[in-house]
Structure formats: structure tokens, C-alpha cells
């Protein structure tokens, strides 16, 4: 497939000698306009790649913070259609920052895969992470998404052994998302040593950039990961700032404030 914004971003960061700061925020949380303000503010706050969460009623791999963020968004009337609209509004003044849509399959299946792919591409989505579509279900969305020029980003976990890894990597592109702990989002922080061992093992099988996530909350933790991975993903900690905000404007301010702090941690690590 042809080069995507994600490919270009990782190439540029490699040349720059640092890891990517991958952020996750929920579309429509706390409301549409505030979420748009967050997404628009993230690149200036240091985000290199933005994962936009697609809200779903039953997020079986997410911890309480992201569950609640999704429910807040849904309560405010967020839908898949509005999520794509949010991304297209973001694209009006940012044509470089890669956007990865992350969520669960049913809203996409309900929307219709072909219609979704054409609308997502038009909106400026670059990649997809669909938590409940393992490689066993590649025919559902992964292969059509590839054909439509979107990166299908796969999760590898501590349970993904050497035998299974090639299968997980088979149709994935963009980057590999290494889930550093067996658990839901926002659970305990990973041990950098275990992560390093896993990354060494995975790199024997792939040249894809590897971003590491689940459990990263601070600039210091992200910096540790930035030393060994090609990217550090922070989601739950950012999403929690929305809930802590005294009002929507404060929520936006808090999310972007934490993003700046974590970004500084990642940027402090110079890679050769």
C-alpha cells in the first residue's frame, strides 16, 4: 500500500531521533465542541499521532475511565457519523498529524463496512484500531481497509507468543501497538524491563515501528518507554483529566496541560 501520514510521521521522527507521543482521547467527551478543541490542541501540545476513540456501550477491553468517557460521549449524542465529522473538521487545518480511529467493531459493522471506509477516508482517517477484530477476523474489515489505503494497526500483547506473532503482523501496517500488560486500559504500569525483553523478541519478526501503551500516566513513565520503543501511547490518564475538569473549558485545558507534560518527558529522550 502507498505511504500514509502514519508512515511519514514515524520516518520523520526517526530522522529527528526521538520516539512518537501517541495520544488517545474519546470523541464527543465531554461534548462535541470540547472534544474537537482537544483534538485541535493536541499537536501543539506535543502529540505526534492522535487516536480518536469511537464510543461504544460495551467496551470489553477498557478500564473504568475509558468506559465512562464513552458513556459520557454517548449520553451527549455522539455517533460514528459525528466522530467522522469531528475528524474532518480537524483536517480542515491540519493535514499532517496522523489520525487513528480506535474502537469496537459493532458501530462500524452497523454503519456498513464499505460506507464506513469511504466516509473515513474522506474524513481524513489514516488508520484503524478495532479491539475486537483479531487476525482471525481479517476478512471483516482489515483486508477491505488495507485495500482502501488505511493502516490497520494491530495489538500485540504479552500473551502473543512467537508462534502467533507472524499471524498478528500479517496484514497490519502503520505501526504495531504493543499492549504492555495483560489487562484493561488504565491498569497497572508496565515494567520497562519486561517491555524491553518483549520488544527485542518482536523486532526479530517485524520492521514496523512499535508503540507501547496501557498503564502509562506520567512524563517520567513515558520517557522510560521512549528509550526502548518507537512510540509511547497515553490514553486513560488524558481521558481522566476530562472527568476532573470543573467545566468543559477546564477539561480541555487539563487534557492539553498533561499532554504537554508527557510530551516533554518523551522529547527529553534523544535516540541515536
Amino acid at each position: 500500500m502507498s505511504e500514509t501520514r502514519i508512515d511519514r510521521r514515524f520516518k520523520a521522527l526517526k530522522a529527528e531521533g526521538r520516539a512518537a507521543f501517541v495520544t488517545y482521547v474519546m470523541a464527543g467527551d465531554p461534548d462535541y465542541q470540547s472534544a474537537l478543541a482537544i483534538v485541535r490542541g493536541l499537536p501543539a501540545a506535543g502529540a505526534d499521532i492522535i487516536e480518536v476513540g469511537l464510543p461504544f456501550t460495551d467496551p470489553m477491553a477498557d478500564g473504568p475511565a475509558i468506559q465512562q468517557a464513552g458513556l459520557r460521549a454517548l449520553a451527549g449524542g455522539m455517533t460514528l457519523k459525528k466522530t467522522l465529522h469531528l475528524i474532518s473538521e480537524f483536517r480542515e487545518d491540519d493535514d499532517d498529524t496522523p489520525i487513528v480511529l480506535m474502537g469496537y467493531y459493532n458501530p462500524i459493522y452497523s454503519y456498513g463496512v464499505d460506507r464506513f471506509l469511504s466516509d473515513a477516508t474522506a474524513a481524513g482517517v489514516d488508520g484503524l484500531i478495532v479491539v475486537d477484530l483479531p487476525s482471525e477476523e481479517d476478512r471483516e474489515l482489515c483486508l477491505p481497509a488495507r485495500a482502501a489505503g488505511l493502516n490497520f494497526i494491530r495489538l500485540a500483547t504479552p500473551t502473543t507468543d512467537d508462534k502467533r506473532l507472524p499471524k498478528v503482523l500479517a496484514n497490519s501496517s502503520g505501526f504495531l501497538y504493543y499492549v504492555s500488560i495483560a489487562g484493561t486500559t488504565g491498569a497497572a504500569a508496565p515494567s520497562p524491563r519486561d517491555v524491553a525483553t518483549a520488544l527485542t523478541r518482536i523486532r526479530k519478526t517485524t520492521d514496523l515501528p512499535i508503540a507501547v501503551g496501557f498503564g502509562l500516566r506520567t512524563g517520567a513513565q513515558a520517557a522510560e518507554i521512549a528509550k526502548i520503543a518507537d512510540g509511547a501511547v497515553v490514553g486513560t490518564a488524558l481521558v481522566e483529566q476530562v472527568a476532573l475538569g470543573s467545566d468543559n473549558a477546564d477539561a480541555v485545558k487539563r487534557v492539553l496541560g498533561l499532554a504537554r507534560e508527557i510530551s516533554a518527558g518523551i522529547r527529553s529522550v534523544k535516540k541515536t
Binding site: Y105, E136, T159, T160, V168, V179
Partner: peptide, 18 residues
């Protein structure tokens, strides 16, 4: 592949697949 016609399948997170 675990399907009854179009139904069934294995729609779970990668952690659970193994």
C-alpha cells in the same frame, strides 16, 4: 472458523485469542 453461516466467529481482544 467457528461460524454458523454468517454468525459466530471470534471477535475478542488479542490478549484473549491465545
Amino acid at each position: 472458523t467457528g461460524h454458523f453461516g454468517i454468525f459466530g466467529g471470534q471477535f475478542v481482544a488479542e490478549t484473549l485469542m491465545p
